[in-house]
Design a protein around this nucleic acid. Structure first.
Length: 392
DNA sequence: AAGCCGGGGAT
DNA sequence: ATCCCAGGCTT
């Protein structure tokens, strides 16, 4: 499916302007779902050992569960406590991490273990505001460690949660963008299960559940709700499901700016005829008939120089009378943007009709017969412009 | 706000 | 090939 931001029914502005509300039972629905259908046997679950929980959270940053499991087992076997980790040489820590990627995580892990020993008596804090001051622990990881180790009521916001929220609440816009992320943190606060006597166990189930939901049901490619609405406890309230937007939400990361190239195309006119050249099969517009092109080496573009070069080229064909800039347009490819400038040259007489320098076939085509040959879309527009007699 | 880090799975 | 993954840190 092509991504066309222009076709996206929701603009970021519209979704921001119309804030959604979180159903009051959102959190408990996730809790119930997690207890029935969530994951319960991951190596870092079923423990309140903050060390193991923290280690798993760091390993799981930008890293999928399946990739982490082996590393986690090996790591806790070798270094079973935060004290052991703090006392270990850096080389041993890095060796245990080697292959997981994002190695600053391992360096921060080691620093964090030492800080827990030196500044917190070897005991992990349970307050997210304190946890977040430790190396390698950001807002989401702090909340996850606090929730899993102590049942603290504080929201996480990772890639899974962002995907679930973007769809359920119909939030358009790249979640990495600050305004979108800020909005999602607000929603994450409101989505928590209620405070109360069961808060701790509910927070453990909720935190695990909202991630499991994103990982197993509200997946990126084919969300389970498309084939079975009962698969998701939030399906009844899901904006993306209701409006058929699961394929376009969350909004993908914007593609990097693509480079711009420019070219000068020559519109050699002899009466109603225009000169076209067949493009090589390989490369852009392979096998299509296009206008002859000139390289442009002057920056900024020098119109007079280009017109002079166009006249010189025209003299290889016959007797030119005048040259003029006849159009400017931009054509967008997947990987670059092409600025096309067209220079028109009128020929009073044509003495040569073939013999291009590049050995490619050339021919004259009447502007009244444009359908006879396949031409690239921007060339077609230029030629239609010529047929109409317009300059631009 | 944008760039950087990284190996691996899914499509 | 491209996007994304239990994000956080630096500039």
């Amino acid at each position: 499916m092509p991504r066309k931001s222009a076709a996206l029914p929701l603009s970021p502005a519209s979704s921001l302007a119309a804030p959604v509300s979180v159903p009051s039972d959102f959190g408990m629905r996730v809790v119930s779902w997690q207890r029935q259908h969530g994951r319960h046997d991951l190596p870092w679950q079923n423990t309140r050992d903050a060390y193991r929980i923290w280690l798993s959270e760091i390993m799981l940053q930008q890293t999928q569960v399946v990739a982490v499991i082996e590393y986690f087992q090996r790591f806790v076997t070798q270094l079973p406590t935060v004290a052991a980790l703090a006392a270990a040489p850096a080389d041993e820590v890095m060796a245990l991490w080697a292959g997981l990627g994002y190695y600053s995580r391992a360096r921060n892990l080691h620093r964090c273990a030492k800080a827990v020993m030196d500044e917190h008596g070897g005991v992990f804090p349970t307050d997210p505001a304190v946890l977040v001051t430790l190396p390698g622990i950001g807002r989401s990881t702090a909340a996850a460690v606090a929730a899993f180790s102590a049942g603290v009521r504080s929201p996480i916001l990772d890639g899974n949660v962002k995907r679930v929220f973007a769809r359920v609440f119909g939030i358009a816009g790249y979640p990495g963008e600050r305004a979108i992320e800020t909005r999602m943190w607000q929603l994450a606060e409101q989505a928590l299960p209620p405070a109360g006597p069961h808060q701790a166990e509910d927070m453990i189930a909720y935190t695990q559940g909202v991630m499991d939901l994103g990982a197993t049901v509200c997946s990126r490619g084919k969300p389970a709700c498309l084939s079975d609405a009962n698969a998701c406890p939030l399906a009844a309230d899901c904006v993306a499901r209701r409006d058929g937007l699961t394929a376009v939400l969350p909004t993908p990361k914007p593609r990097a700016a693509i480079p711009e190239r420019s070219t000068v195309m020559l519109v050699m006119r002899h009466g109603r005829d225009v000169l076209l050249g067949l493009r090589p099969d390989s490369g852009i517009w392979g096998g299509l008939w296009s206008l002859p092109e000139m390289p442009v080496d002057t920056v900024p573009f020098d119109i007079e120089a280009a017109e002079d070069a166009a006249l010189a080229y025209a003299r290889t064909l016959g007797k030119p009378s005048r040259a003029m800039l006849a159009g400017e347009l931009t054509h967008v490819f997947t990987h670059f943007r092409l600025l096309i400038r067209a220079i028109r040259v009128d020929l009073d007489a044509v003495t040569h009709t073939d013999g291009g320098a590049d050995d490619q076939p050339r021919r004259w085509l009447s502007l009244d017969d444009l359908d006879a040959l396949g031409t690239p879309a921007p060339v077609r527009r230029l030629l239609e412009d010529q047929a109409r007699g317009g300059l631009f």
